[in-house]
Design a protein around this nucleic acid. Sequence first.
DNA 1: TTTTGAGTTGTTCGA
DNA 2: GTCGAACAACTCAAA
Length: 469
Amino acid sequence: MTEPLILWFRRDLRLTDLPLWQAALATGRPLIPVFILDDQTEAPGAAARMRLGMALDAFGATLAARGSRLILRRGRAADVLAALIAETGAAGVMWTRAYDPAAKARDTAVKAALRERGLLAESHPGFLLHEPWRVETGQGGPYRVFTPFWRAVRVLEVGAALPPPARLNPPDHWPASDLLADWRLDAAMRRGAAVVAPWQRPGEAAALARLEEFAETRLAAYAAERDFPGLPATSGLSEHLTYGEISPRLIWHRGRRAMEEGNPGAETFLKELVWREFAWALLHHFPDLDRRNWRRDWDAFPWRPDNPEAELWRRGMTGEPLVDAAMREMYVTGRMHNRARMIAASYLTKHLLTDWRVGLAWFADCLTDWDPAANAMGWQWVAGSGPDAAPYFRIFNPAGQAEKFDATQAYRRAWVAELSRHPPATATSYFAAVPRRWALDPARPYPLPVIGLAEGRERALAALAQGKA
DNA sequence: TTTTGAGTTGTTCGA
DNA sequence: GTCGAACAACTCAAA
């Protein structure tokens, strides 16, 4: 009888275009899919934990529908894998590569330990279009500016997407599995699944349908409309990419096809996908991207630590409608429109002079599409300490941005109840979602701005000028 | 080695 | 209202 092989799933919860499946099936061994909840290495925020639970539920169902299962275990990955190997007599473990520093360290140790015992230990690509160490400048070394990175990546070959495996080679005997419900992955989020869950569309089938629907109906207008947070113009694929419910390669090829067909939104869309690549390449090469100023000369900048105004920012009560709309959208839906992210982040770091790490932490706790690389790069980009040659005096004016990108007030009205006599359900749902101790009441008048826009801008410019000197 | 061109997403002011 | 210039000087990547 052939020993089985353990497939260790992490952020690759899919069947379509996952090289891991083909590599594993090629061994001819029975395959035992496993997910390990490893609190030591991975500590996603409350919303991401809840969304992970939904992803695992969907993936488990997908496997079950094809005669396989997703075995759930909890603990230190190395220990759990060792236990599983002992229980099943498995010949080894295969997985899809991860690129954040903690996962890399863990996986390297696991691989070494398995091989030392003469067991099979193999990692495969699948989370990114290109391995971060493969994209280098002419002199060697990582790109630090997006546009050259884009120019390099756009001409790189991307292999054809792989079909979902026809069979999943289940074993005759299954090891025991935890019950997903017992993990209570939504417990950390006090507002509960009832608020945020309806906004999620977990699972591979949903992801594939979304890509196709987006490509057919909204991609053409993407370049023109993506900056308007009140329009349904974006792809919504981020939550799927985060958990690997869709392959970036599949998205790439779909975008390329649209480009060849002359679709006017395709190139802008592909660029966004490559921004994700860029973020992961940066995190790979600069593992402290989420903790330290990427430009070290920003270490002297007098960021304010967490403060009462930052708390108002978190609560969507700054009195700046576009910023508050953004923060409330995130609290209720687990996501925030891309432009709104920039504006909300600029407000915290510039107008409120608050350390970007304060904002990064809150986003990490609230986003169901939380991506450690994109979040870290984005916050540093906005703060000015990150990879961008932008002028330091770029300070988003939330009122000007509202005029430009939300002229109809569609976005602000959707999320700020105090702005309408008969607010929509989205806006009132926020007040039902927030903790009671925040003591928010939609009947109370909308708060006055915590800081005047001109005053905030002047203060930020002064601090930035001083910080540079 | 040196040089050169360019850099996601902005704002304000004055013509 | 629209448009161009100023906001500084630096780093990056390639020639």
